[in-house]
Every structure is written in C-alpha cells, then in structure tokens.
Amino acid sequence: MAEATHHTNVDRGPVAGPRVHPLSVVTLAFVFLFLLIVVTLLVTDLLYIQRTPMPKKVAWGAILAAVKLSAITSACTLVLVVVFAIPMGYALSRYRFRGIVVVDTLVDLPIVLPPLVIGVSLLVFFSTSLGQWIESTGLKFVYTVPGIVLCQFLVSASYGVRAATAAFDGVDRRLEQLALTLGCTPWQAFTRVALPVARNGIVAGAIMAWARAVGIFGPLMIFCGSVRYKTEVMPTSIYLELSIGNVEVALAVALVMVGLAAVALVAIHALAPGQRWWAR
C-alpha cells in the first residue's frame, strides 16, 4: 500500500484556509444532527426493550419460522439478482443500441416505484388468463413462498443491475480488447478480465439488493398475505406482532433487522467502488 499511496489523490478538503472555518462547522453540524436522530431512535428502541418485560404468550416458533423464511427467500432472491445483474449490467454498459434510454429507464423504474405498486401489479397480472395459465402449470405464486421471492426480486433487482452496470462501466474496454490479443475468446475476456475487475461493484450491489429484499413488506401483504408459518417473513412478523399489541416482540425482530442492515452496510463500505482492494 505504501508504494501505491502516491497514485491516489491526497484529500485536501474543499478549500485551503484556517483549520476551523464556518464552512466546515455548518456542514459538519448537519452530519451530527442527522446522526443524532438515528442514534436516538436506536437507543430508544434498545431502552424500551430492556425496560419492558416480554409478554408471556409469544409465538416464538412462528417468529423463528419467519426469520428462517426471510433468510431462505432473500438468499434465493440474491442468487436471482446476481444471475440477472451480471449479464444485464454488462450489456447495458457495453452495448449502445436504439432505445437504450427507454430500456435504462424501465430497468430503473422499480427503484423509484413504491413497492406496493409492484404487489398490486403482480396480483392483477396473476388474475389475467396468462397469469392463470402459469398458476395452472403448478408453478404457484399467489400467496406462496415463490411469490415472496418474486416480490423481493422485482423490488430489488434494479439495485443489483444498476450497480453491476456502473461496475462494468468502470472496467476499461481496452483491457478486454487486449485480452483478445493475449489469447482469450470473447467469453474468456469476460470471465477472466471484465468480471473480476468489476467484482467488487457487483458484490456491493448484490448486498444492497439483498438488504432491500429482506426489508420489503407492502407487496408481500398484497400478493402473499401474512399467514403464520406459511408466508410470514420478518417484516410481516413486525406487523403481526404490532397488530396484536406485542410492541416488545415487534421491536426485538426490528432490532435483528437493524443488525442485519448494519452488517450489510459495513460489507458494502468495505467493497465500495473507488476503494481498490487489490492495492491494499
């Protein structure tokens, strides 16, 4: 790393000047204000759960099943997202074709769309004759576990694709071309050069997509319902427990999710684009 440091820009801050400038005071003040809000919320959660005794009758079995189902479905979604994001990201980064703006916009749509809309759309789709036919083949989605995966995938895939596109954008095309002269087929140039160089960005995007997938709730309520031991995932548990007045239990599940989110964030930061792991 020592030898590599002189290649990276030295961070000199926005402007030269006295050590404490109103500019840094004001901008940092906003950082601290925001931090204060987040930390306060977390601390309140923790204190609440510590102070209040757990209710006697808690369906821990159902909650455990929900945690398990969350893990399984989000893992499936993660695999699906990666399977789609790698080829899609590569194509969107490398090929310029007519209508790419439209394609780009549609790929990004689920990022800005309220997740609830995806749930409604799915429900409507599976009431059409095509949707009915798919269900009749035995591949059932409405109110089932595959339905959960489908919802999670649709809500989160765009994040993975976007990240993969950006990662491939960061890979110099000339490296792949050069790989061709060094004996690679176009496939080998992709697997041996483009993919490994883009790896970190793709992994960071996949984690981001996974975190989204674990957290969705709205479309699940519409498309999969909230049936204990069947389609109950962690966000559903929070909702169900709250609805029967078990705030402490809901909070406990919520804190598990906060923990997961924190782990995901740390992982994304460790792999953040721009930080070159190979130079470490």
Binding site: D172, R174, L175, L178, A179, T181, V193, P196, V197, R199, R276, W278
Partner: peptide, 11 residues
C-alpha cells in the same frame, strides 16, 4: 500487442 496504455490487468 503492447498498447500505449499498457493495459496491465489491475486484479
């Protein structure tokens, strides 16, 4: 071929 940008694989 040795291109002007050298093109060493960073990974």
């Amino acid at each position: 071929y040795v291109p002007q940008h050298q093109g060493l694989f960073p990974h």
